[in-house]
Design a protein around this nucleic acid. Sequence first.
DNA 1: TATTGTTATACTCTATAACTATA
DNA 2: TATAGTTATAGAGTATAACAATA
Lengths: 167, 167
Amino acid sequence: MADSPRSLDPVQLGAYFDLIEVSSLLRYAVEQQLREAGDLSYVQFQLLARLGDSPTGSQRMTDLADGVVYSRSGLTYQAGLLEKAGLVVRAPSPEDERVTTVTITDAGRALLAKVLPGHVEVVRGMLFEPLSREDVMTLAGLLAPVRDHMRSTPPRSAAPRRRQREA
Amino acid sequence: MADSPRSLDPVQLGAYFDLIEVSSLLRYAVEQQLREAGDLSYVQFQLLARLGDSPTGSQRMTDLADGVVYSRSGLTYQAGLLEKAGLVVRAPSPEDERVTTVTITDAGRALLAKVLPGHVEVVRGMLFEPLSREDVMTLAGLLAPVRDHMRSTPPRSAAPRRRQREA
DNA sequence: TATTGTTATACTCTATAACTATA
DNA sequence: TATAGTTATAGAGTATAACAATA
């Protein structure tokens, strides 16, 4: 018990609730758009987007799992779906035969391109419409340090054995 | 090659990604804490918290479903679990027999009280630690209008069938 | 007829543990 | 032995549609 459980002040509480609500509603809307436009779940979209952003169009399974906060078996499952749909291919890495390299296909890129405009549309319409350009910069400036903080802080109470952190 | 709606600018993109990542990581951590401290999913916690906040400790099923972004059948399922665990009770409303009133029990309040300190702890440690008091006020000031905007736009029950297209 | 809620069902997703193979 | 990934499996959660009861 390092800290006494003082509660959150009203402003913090409001910010927390609004953050949860905003992200939930946004996520819900985006998921619906992705499902309709390309029959993709959000996770699948994230995986494709990550591969599409990669210069080579490829990534190792483990790196993908790290990026999306997934168990490896969960990633295997999703990668299997994407592969079955012809959106990615998997192949063992020549350098290290233990490693599986996932690569986005042309079909995968095409689907990404097909889905992206609607995706952007939803995000702009829901998230950015009520914000000025300056607001967005401010928001980005606030979220970035939080993101960095979260990334650097392992979950305190129960650290699931993800990857061992080199100390 | 459909009409390309202007893409998001880099600042918007960053804000969007960070929002998604921050809320995902926070949600993940909070869910773990709730599971460990009280064997509650986040949705179940939200339902209990809503009931606990209500002056009467009661709410109609539909109001609960609206507040939590759920289908009614999904809420029925969750309410069933909570009831089986003795955390809420359900009863038909005397005024309108169609309505089911859900009420938090003493055990429900007790569990809420047991779980809350750890919950607050996680939120503060992950979300608010890197933010000054002023930052939090700014963040709250930005999220509130977004939340209002999202609430006011076609929520979730409507939409799927029609595709919106800008002229 | 419209609304509230439940049920039946089918499916998606996720995690754990055991397993294979490479290093 | 340690690491990368897969498989088997089991469980939680969600949505859709059909349904019953009430308004």
